[in-house]
């Protein structure tokens, strides 16, 4: 429970954060809410030699209506996402899913950017933003670029971000009145999902993101296509795990996970009316 030795520097702006990570190189890591990174450090599973604290970059904490989409600063705390009026109106699925992240303490510290950058397939927000077709904005020494959520998650806890890139903004398309539902199946209220489903449908379009069904968050395209083209929730849900490649762990076998994905997808689609 005592991390290995590390140095600590605090960045006052995105530019400074990027400059600092350039100076300190590979062994440095950004520290946002610390609620994923610090537990790993305490278990000595991560041993960065320098922490660059971006947690106080106020400029990166915002939720703004941008017309077609809502822009969320990467350092926005889960609590603020959960309680945002803009999101309640335009992307209620994200606000609602965020309510299910950990407990109030976690939601007051953890950030949306940290959650996405950490790229843990068991986390709620990667799959949710994926289902919503979000775009992420990354800033690096050579400027900024946009990365579609669908291109962001490369493998288990590995994202398309370069080591010296900072995630600065999440752009969530407005849901325009789509019906939605979020299912999180876990054993204790504060736990990560054994399986989770974020689903929305609007006329002939739909999106379904699965939590903890592979090394990356999964877009359940076959099920979404089926429901969009008129299949019943039960029939569409039969295809829920088509794109999945789940692992077994203490809480679930592969077979059980696939079963849960189908049951929860059906329930989500039934409820999203």
């Amino acid at each position: 429970m005592i991390p290995a030795k590390f140095d600590y520097v605090r960045a006052g702006s995105a530019e400074e954060a990027i400059r600092l990570i350039g100076e300190h190189g590979d062994e440095a890591k950004f520290l946002a809410g610390g609620h994923s990174l610090l537990p790993l450090m305490k278990l000595r599973l991560a041993q960065p030699s320098v922490l660059i604290d971006i947690g106080r970059i106020r400029d990166l904490s915002y939720i703004e209506d941008k017309g077609d989409y809502v822009a969320i600063g990467a350092l926005t705390r889960h609590h603020d996402v959960e309680h945002s009026d803009v999101l309640a109106e335009h992307a209620p699925l994200l606000a609602h899913a965020t309510k299910h992240v950990g407990d109030p303490q976690v939601r007051h510290r953890g950030t949306i950017g940290g959650s996405l950058a950490h790229a843990d397939p068991a986390s709620d927000l990667p799959a949710t933003t994926l289902a919503l077709g979000a775009t992420y904005v990354a800033a690096g020494p050579n400027g900024t670029r946009e990365i579609a959520a669908g291109d962001f998650y490369e493998s288990f806890m590995t994202s398309a971000l370069a080591p010296d890139e900072l995630l600065t903004e999440i752009r969530v398309p407005k849901m325009n009145g789509a019906k939605w539902n979020f299912q999180k199946f876990n054993r204790r209220a504060l736990d990560w999902a054994i399986v989770g489903v974020a689903a929305w449908r609007n006329g002939d379009s739909a999106g379904i993101g699965l939590v903890n069904m592979a090394g990356t968050p999964v877009l359940a395209t076959a099920a979404a296509d089926a429901i969009a083209s008129g299949a019943s929730p039960a029939d569409a849900a039969e295809h829920a795990a088509d794109e999945s490649d789940p692992q077994a762990d203490l809480n679930a076998s592969v077979e059980y996970r696939v079963h849960l994905a189908k049951v929860l997808t059906r329930r989500a689609l039934e409820a999203a009316v």
Partner: peptide, 28 residues
């Protein structure tokens, strides 16, 4: 409903942290 010390076949404890050893909280 919740707790159990789980070992693998080599005798490694799989539930050494409170993330894996499920002590219920008030909400559970």
């Amino acid at each position: 409903l919740f707790e159990g010390a789980v070992y693998d076949a080599d005798g490694n404890l799989q539930t050494a942290t409170l993330a894996d050893y499920l002590v219920p909280a008030a909400s559970d």
